[in-house]
Amino acid sequence: MNILRDSLVIARRNTIRIRRVPDVMVFVLIQPLMFVVLFAYVFGGSIDIPGSSYREFLMAGIFTQTVVFGATFTGAGLAEDLQKGLINRFRSLPMSPYAVVAGRTASDVIYNVLSIAMMSIAGLAVGWRIRSSVLDALIGYALLLFFSYAFSWVMACIGLAVRTPEVVNNASFMVLFPLTFIANTFVPSDNLPAVFRTIAEWNPVSALTHAARVHFGNIPASAPEPTAWPIQNSTMYTLAWAIGLILVFAPIAARSYQRAGAR
């Protein structure tokens, strides 16, 4: 069996679908745009970020939230394949048990690239700027994409477990909202109540958001040094989480795949 070739065949099939089902694109592109505008103009006036503007602070948070939510496409896509009987077809073929999920997580990166591009344009329009080097900015984008790629393996497991795309969306929102809100995404975590603050500090979403702010140069010189270890080492902490998620969830996904769909 050839995991790479099989995954590419599946990824190619998914990219054809991305082109043929443009409705999904509307959500991929419009939703982040909506968030940028809503947060920038609704919260922007009331939240004060010392030494910086809220919009400057906000953008990394929106990036993170969007790419983490973007992982639901992976779960929904696999649940749809399961529902339509395609997983049964694939399972009867002499292909790698990793390929269907690996191809899906790989092709879903396209959604995140597109929504990040859209958000960047919207951010620039409302006054966000990248104040670091090109290389730094690229590292920031790469971190966002890598973390969301890793996170999509978690969603893959959910998609193969719950079996219908609608349930994937509902089930994952219950995880994704706390995950992206009990964090430093939209407000500084310093202001949270003690327990929430600790959760926020160790939440990988906070580390990713902080790392993105650092790499985009969105942290003002006057900002206080972070005290929590995961935030101080945000890039490393984010990478460790991403690699950890793949190592833990890829085998789980492969096993659920091998048991999925059969009657």
């Binding site: 099939r13 054809i16 679908r17 043929r20 339509k84 009987g85 077809r89």
Partner: peptide, 9 residues
């Protein structure tokens, strides 16, 4: 029994 084909392809 259920044609397992990708309808978008």
């Amino acid at each position: 029994q259920y044609a397992a084909v990708d309808e978008h392809l």
